[in-house]
Design a protein around this nucleic acid. Structure first.
Lengths: 226, 226
DNA sequence: CCGGGCCTCCCCCGCCCGGGGGAGACGATC
DNA sequence: GATCGTCTCCCCCGGGCGGGGGAGGCCCGG
């Protein structure tokens, strides 16, 4: 995984709170293979900075004045050639905006309360090109309810993830390896209906395809392996 | 899941050993919702029996005289309209023939040494239309190595599943949600190569698509959730 | 030396998947 | 009564996926 002599990962910090920027900078600059190349306090300043600095990763807050993280993400991806990886930074897990940002093309998200090691890890991962989805956030949902796996716990977690009851059913069947047609047969509805639910699930989980959604289900303890 | 007043699941037993047939019959007939409607001692007798009895499920031995389970499975699926679900019965986990049978279109497999409750469960599941893949077999691989999750244990399990080293790498990346193109980039090979490996993995695990393969990986402890 | 397994890559092809957008029906809520 | 969310279904469309078959290079073991 670690290639000797590789160039350091360059990061642009975008957050309206200086304290947060300072914290991120401190955490990231402690790593020899990560370099913070710039900072911005709002979304509007991002585009020119990205063009000038060409960072590998943009750590982007969601809630910001002038231009929020979602719009900023869209703007960067739409206007910049070979855009940087975008890591959405947020205070709350299950922030609705986070999912919108992921839909807008962000590569991952990160909780501000995450431990330094996690933050560093997240930056390295997105820099490597990996879609860093549902890492701490979704997983923590299950942890909040005991050992996550029981029926009630899973149901609670599902609500927190803002999945509707039907979407939860669909996700569970997806996690058993069923195709859309098979799920439709099982639920006695049309395949188009299932497709609709699947799309909602993918959007809400920030997953790109059903495989990632199933991974999220396992990671969150929605399904019990073994 | 259980619909009141549903018709019982009808099963045809195909095995060259009378003892095995008797055992299966005893186990299955103990259930009020399962009915054994016929028996055959070799693969050649299966087709006419299926046409006449129209069973919901065929419990099919792999190693049989005249026509083995693989050829019999192919024959049934090719010649019978609205074919029954086929549950492959075998003595050995990791029997190469099992995977071939799954590729031939079988809906699941079952170990003869399985507990009665597992056997009943398997029949009900395939009757419901679920592809019953890698249930005991793959899962047991991990169980043989402690709590299955460590690096060495997973590697050993992979070998048992007859996956090559490269196929194991590909499976791990699949289980992280990567697309074929992303895997290709990560491994620095062509996408056609990755597709080739993925196909091998699917065949060996008896999975229909990458999602089922990832489920197998989680179930077997190839990847550690949480 | 000649298989055989593995890794690599190629072609063609059909299908399922997922995105986008829209719409009607229902119940709850305001 | 109007609005919102959910569930249901529809259209079009592109792209990734998976199957099938083939092929060349490599190393190891018979």
């Amino acid at each position: 995984m670690i290639y000797a002599g590789r160039m350091p990962v360059t990061v642009l910090l975008v957050d309206d709170e200086p304290l947060v920027r300072a914290g991120l900078r401190a955490v990231l600059e402690a790593q020899s293979d990560i370099e913070v190349v710039g900072e911005a306090a709002d979304g509007a300043a991002v585009i020119p900075l990205v063009r000038r600095l060409r960072p590998d990763v943009v750590a982007m807050d969601v809630r910001m004045p002038l231009l929020d993280g979602i719009e900023a993400t869209r703007a960067v991806l739409r206007t910049v050639h070979e855009p940087p990886k975008i890591l959405v930074v947020t205070t709350f897990e299950n922030d609705e905006y986070v999912y919108e940002a992921l839909r807008a093309g962000a590569d991952g998200f990160l909780l501000k309360r995450a431990r330094p090691a996690e933050i560093v890890h997240a930056v390295r991962l997105v820099a490597e090109g990996e879609s860093l989805l549902f890492p701490a956030s979704v997983r923590r949902l299950a942890a909040e309810f005991g050992d996550g796996g029981g029926n009630r716990a899973a149901r609670e977690a599902l609500e927190r993830a803002r999945l509707t009851e039907r979407e939860g059913e669909v996700l569970r069947l997806m996690a058993r390896g069923l195709s859309n047609a098979e799920i439709a047969a099982r639920l006695v509805v049309g395949t188009e209906t299932v497709k609709s639910h699947v799309s909602s699930v993918l959007a809400k989980l920030g997953a790109r395809d059903r495989t990632q959604a199933v991974i999220a289900a396992y990671e969150a303890g929605f399904v019990t392996p073994g």
